[in-house]
Amino acid sequence: MTQDKSAQGVGRRDLLKLSAVAGAAIAGASLIGSRTAAAEGELSLKGKRIAISATGTDHFFDLQAYNAQIEEVKRLGGEPIAVDAGRNDGKLVSQLQTLIAQKPDAIVQILGTLSVIDPWLKKARDAGIPVLTVDVGSTNSINNTTSDNWGIGKDLALQLVSDIGGEGNIVVFNGFYGVTPCAIRYDQLVNVVKYFPKVKILEPELRDVIPNTVQDAFTQITALLNKYPEKGSIKAIWSAWDIPQLGATQAVAAAGRTEILTYGVDGSPEVLQLVADPNSPAGADVAQQPAEIGRTAIQNVARLLAGQTLPRETYVPALIANKANVNEVSKKLGIG
């Protein structure tokens, strides 16, 4: 693990330099569809059929990434074959099987539980179809475009620990440890908390669910607040994404326990709004740039098909939005 990390650290630093330049250009141009075509002028997918397989499009992140990918394939002159499994694993596997039979020039898989999709990504690779992924690392994928989840996890954990003054109980939603980005973010929280002996993760950890994530988080937090009725007995609520955070924030507000701050990841517009509201207990939300991630993945496909070698992972910078800078971040994402 440490070896992995240091190796990735080197690659990441170089990439960050590059992406900082690209990011600055994109931030300026991202408001309305005008693209930084100059830098990517030589990229083309003319005559190529690019399969885009999404685990679902019911979250802000995957919808943005999915739509941006379809548009980017079209913009580069290719034909997208886009399928959306609606967060149903059986459907996801069937769609991948059919995609393999369709023999596209490349398959881009957005998210998914690794143990479910990996055997089929391997079959695609065995069938000679290049596989790229978005936000899910797999040994069968040539390149994974993602946010730097180590950075996200660390930034969020440090923000949390600093907001609660380095001590107190925190409640954690850890229902999707099987999903790699969630696992990394959780591990980073644990790593940070380890050095703050007065911060304690309450046991048992909560499990966020799909579907009905918001309602379920609301119910679980409401029950937990009844179990810990004293003000100050809970300082913060952490979740690996921001949909449980949404339900948790509502539950905290409804119970009048606004001394408890909530933390999450993804930059869903409704959660960013809560962070921006000075009276809301939403503490911080790390915003990924899903549309940019989607476009980058497709540009990587074009680079690969043009014979270039791709790095194992391409990192698109994420932006932490806290009470102080949320308006700035929203503007950067083109939401605000």
């Binding site: 059986g90 479910v116 799909i210």
Partner: peptide, 9 residues
């Protein structure tokens, strides 16, 4: 066998 494990949903 299809999903390489048991999944939700």
């Amino acid at each position: 066998s299809n999903l390489s494990g048991s999944t939700t949903g």
